[in-house]
Design a protein around this nucleic acid. Structure first.
Lengths: 353, 353
DNA sequence: TTGAAAGCGCTAACAT
DNA sequence: ATGTTAGCGCTTTCAA
């Protein structure tokens, strides 16, 4: 009824199981690793012995010989000056945007059936980045999934030149021989612009993401593209930083520039939420006076009042694909070529537009 | 100028460094692990050799002999029926509340100076829990930090009976010989009630957390305590589930029960945000008509309109303390006794009350 | 199909 | 202060 499970101290080893089953270590190893060519009877005996001894294979010993950690790192990578005073809050700031939670969820979901779990790393300073490289070089993880928060993040290049397997979320701002997943940002922005136009808006502005980020540029480009094609060669633009505060400030500027605007495309949901607050404080009804379209379809979108119409980015699937790509690179060291997988966005209509 | 760093395949070993420095493996090991009793000159020579060869110690080899993974698991643990259809979204749902991001940030912050990084695990089904136990028994991690989302989470007991080092966030609902950190929930609720009373509210209601959770019960108890002492033996109560939707529903019920209420204490910020939405939709001004006090001081509190007055829970520090406690248990296997560290909450006054 | 044996790279006695 | 040596627990040729 009660299985004997000895404490970690004198944990049973392959040797113990072998003795209990009356076979050799090699044979036990074979059945544990599911290698065929093992007599069914012996297989059964071994399984019983495993059960009886409460055996659990030792990860370190296995890794030492297979040269695989069976672990991957998920690193959120910033690029602050060393001087930045409040660097310690980086990890905290990161999760203020539900976006990163979705990345974690997507990766974890993909890994779980493989009995793997991501190691979470935050890298902001040069020292942090060295730590990430060290971690991988020590074989603590077989590869890394990188999500950069800044355009000039040096980590991807560092990893590339060290020949360490890595996959990026979003195209790097300077070309690199690395696989990445990304979204068709332009298409997403087009969806937003067309929706705003279709519902009758004629004085439309946009709040962009950081314009040094490809995602920021492309969402703007796609938006402008549609607007220009529809007879609006000039649209008011305010740059934000993907956080709520900058969204509020940007909305403020836009409203000053054109008090009569009737539509805004905001480059992410968190900023859109901020924009909505400012709009309502200035007495605008949403969407009657001003229609708002966000981007991401993160947790804040449905939580907003009114619920946000937004462009869905399938972050979880993108994250899972990242993990899949990384797996390939790990399994074929050097052999696998750098790929990019681009996902299509989708308009999610709620009430804000 | 350019350091030679060979690919992982033929990575340099201690032996290589020893040869390059003209000493023995043991000596190199000593300087790498910072053990004294090494001639400064030789120390220097070894460091140069390390640099020259691009040596990085192999984690698996080290773990095999030290019997330490130098890794800890951070597990978010639910307790769904196996039948639950949408279990796959667990990881995603979890991060919808900024609370968990703060836990991660606090743990990561504590670990980083030690060059350690948390392994993130989500456990919802019995199979998931077995995986967690396996992971630890294999020595993949030295111990676990558990954050349960349900009162009847079986994982802590599982870990305890397996003799695996673990520390909990929040007191388990059934006593267990395990260390945990927690908040003085009653005190926090008292702060909220007193603040509401002090600003003149006289028809005060509360939205609680799940009442099978000690945190839910105690926040309610502390609140009732102060109310009763001030001449309000009966207060309207609506139970929520710590998510925004249930906060909205609860506020709805409360408003139906007493349309004239002028204050609400809500057991967390996410529900408070939902409550605010409903209140405004029902034409109440906040705080003029109805004052609202939340709990947590999570990222949604300042992001709310109006910004939420709330009871601060120092989640990051609590998480760091969890890690510290776990470290002790790991370093003194069996020896360290189960401790509990209780943190004091603090009222953060913003604009909602 | 199974067993014997050689390491994987490192740390930690122990000896010098 | 330094070197020698014996494993840590596992996988994987190689023989039988």
């Amino acid at each position: 009824m009660s299985r004997e499970i000895r404490a970690a101290a004198g944990a049973p080893t392959l040797e113990d199981v072998a003795r209990a089953a009356g076979v050799s270590r090699a044979t036990v190893s074979r059945v544990i690793n599911g290698i065929r060519n093992v007599d069914p009877a012996i297989q059964e005996a071994v399984k019983q012995a495993v059960e009886a001894t409460g055996y659990a294979p030792n990860r370190a010993a296995r890794s030492l010989v297979t040269r695989r950690a069976e672990t991957i790192a998920l690193v959120v990578s910033g690029a602050a000056d060393d001087s930045e005073p409040e660097r310690s809050a980086f990890a905290g700031r990161v999760f203020a945007d539900p976006f990163f939670g979705r990345v974690v969820a997507g990766v974890a979901e993909f890994l779980r059936p493989r009995s793997m779990y991501p190691v979470l790393m935050f890298a902001e300073t040069p020292a942090d980045r060295e730590q990430v490289v060290s971690y991988l070089r020590q074989g603590s993880a077989d590869g890394a999934l990188i999500v950069s928060t800044h355009a000039d993040d040096p980590l991807p290049a560092l990893l590339a030149s060290a020949g360490l397997p890595a996959v990026l979320f979003a195209r790097p701002s300077t070309p690199l021989p690395m696989s990445y997943v990304d979204l068709a940002h332009r298409d997403g922005a087009r969806l937003a612009a067309e929706h705003l136009l279709a519902r009758g808006c004629r004085r439309i502005a946009t709040i962009t993401g950081p314009l040094d980020l490809p995602a920021g540029q492309e969402r703007l480009a796609g938006f402008r593209d549609v607007m220009a094609r529809n007879g609006f060669p000039h649209v008011p633009v305010a740059e934000g930083a993907f956080d709520q505060e900058s969204g509020e400030a940007a909305m403020d500027r836009l409203l000053t520039e054109d008090p009569d605007l009737d539509g805004v495309f905001v480059a992410n949901d968190v900023m859109a939420q901020g924009a909505c607050h400012v709009l309502r404080e200035r007495g605008r009804r949403i969407p009657e006076d001003v229609a708002v379209v966000g981007f991401d379809d993160s947790a804040v979108a449905p939580a907003c009042r009114p619920p946000l119409t937004t462009v869905r980015q399938p972050v979880e699937e993108m994250a899972a694909e990242m993990a899949r790509l990384l797996q390939n690179h790990i399994e074929q060291p050097g052999r696998a070529e750098a790929l990019s997988v681009i996902f299509e966005p989708e308009l999610v209509v709620r009430e804000s537009a």
